[in-house]
Design a protein around this nucleic acid. Sequence first.
RNA 1: GCAAGGAUGGCGGAGUGGUCAAUCGCACCUGACUGUAAAUCAGGCCUCGUGAGAGUACGGGGGUUCAAAUCCCUCUCCUUGCA
Length: 356
Amino acid sequence: MPIRQKIIKTNHGEIHTPAFLPDATYGSINSLSFKDCNLADVKEIVTTTMHLELKLGSEYIEKMGGLHKFFNWNRPILTDSGGFQVFSLIHRRGNKKNKITDLGAEFVDPATGSKFLLTPENSQQIQNRLGSDIRVVLDEPQGLGASHEQALESVVRTTSWAKRSKEEFQRLNTQTVLLGGVIQGGGILELRKRSALELMEIGFDTYNFGGLPILPDGSLDLELSKYLVDLLPEDKIRYAMGIGTPDDIVNLAKMGWDLFDCVLPTRNARHGYLFVPKGEGDKDYDNYSVMHLKSERYKYADIPIASDIPDELKNVSRAYLRHLIRIKEPAGFRLATINNLYFYSQITKKLRNGQI
RNA sequence: GCAAGGAUGGCGGAGUGGUCAAUCGCACCUGACUGUAAAUCAGGCCUCGUGAGAGUACGGGGGUUCAAAUCCCUCUCCUUGCA
């Protein structure tokens, strides 16, 4: 059976799915320039409302002509709502200074200590000033470990916030911009279903798999992923937020998920953990292998990283890149990141071409 | 030559009679990382052993003591000051 493929039309070009969007959280794919995206075959990116608002301010970015002009990047940009920070800064870290109410989520900027109230409405306003192509409603994520009570609360609040987000989105009268609702419910199927149905009732362009669906053993909850995707309308985009490893992407794309974003390829690159074709690294998985390039075993490896690598890496030996990363040299982070994003691009390209 | 201060694990540097195989940092080794508070975090890092544990160690040698990295003597070397 051929894989599900969609073409998403945006103000800044088409996205051919399945697609992987690297995270440019602070307005940059860490250690890359936008020109480097060509080397890594990166065609679209995700950036984050919360971080940009705290670091730069959306009013500033609006004055600078919006994200695309500011970045000089004419391809699609998806902005996350700041919802994940609700999860990572409040729930996961137990930070008492950050709190969540029906009104919104109150954060303390870790860098400056100043307070900021993120609401469904101002998250949309910020994303609108940023001028992104695909937007996300503010939500309250809960992971698989959440209790029934916590998961229910996150569903109820997320639906309520989704309504307010959509109203604000419509009020802003954005043309040809897509808005996504985020499905919550932790690991409880009934709650996931309720969340999906409530969001479909409101109506969105993309339906997003929210909360990190990672099991205690570190693997992705495939059963939940399958259950959820089957509830979603065929004609809408399905976006698996924060997913995942190359295998996760392959598995979910085959189920019918369209969009993916994840920090793994970029963060791991900086940690000397490279994604390479199966059989070429230290440990094999279904569709890839990992290479712990910092390891002593690559000290004398005077050969390229892998068989399929971008031109930029063809004359770089494993031993030399190992050295660069070990001394925390930005040039090394850059090359490793290019490698990993290129590998991810090849995975989605192969999925679209029916080669996986 | 005299005087004073030093010599601790790959390096830097704690410890000044027992709880010391020895705080800590760096380096090194092995992992982890899934809508990025992440150039981060965890574990290891004398030898043998999977482990309990055993052995050897705080410049060399000798001594005091139930017990020494810690006290005493001596030798070697280093630093500083005076000649």
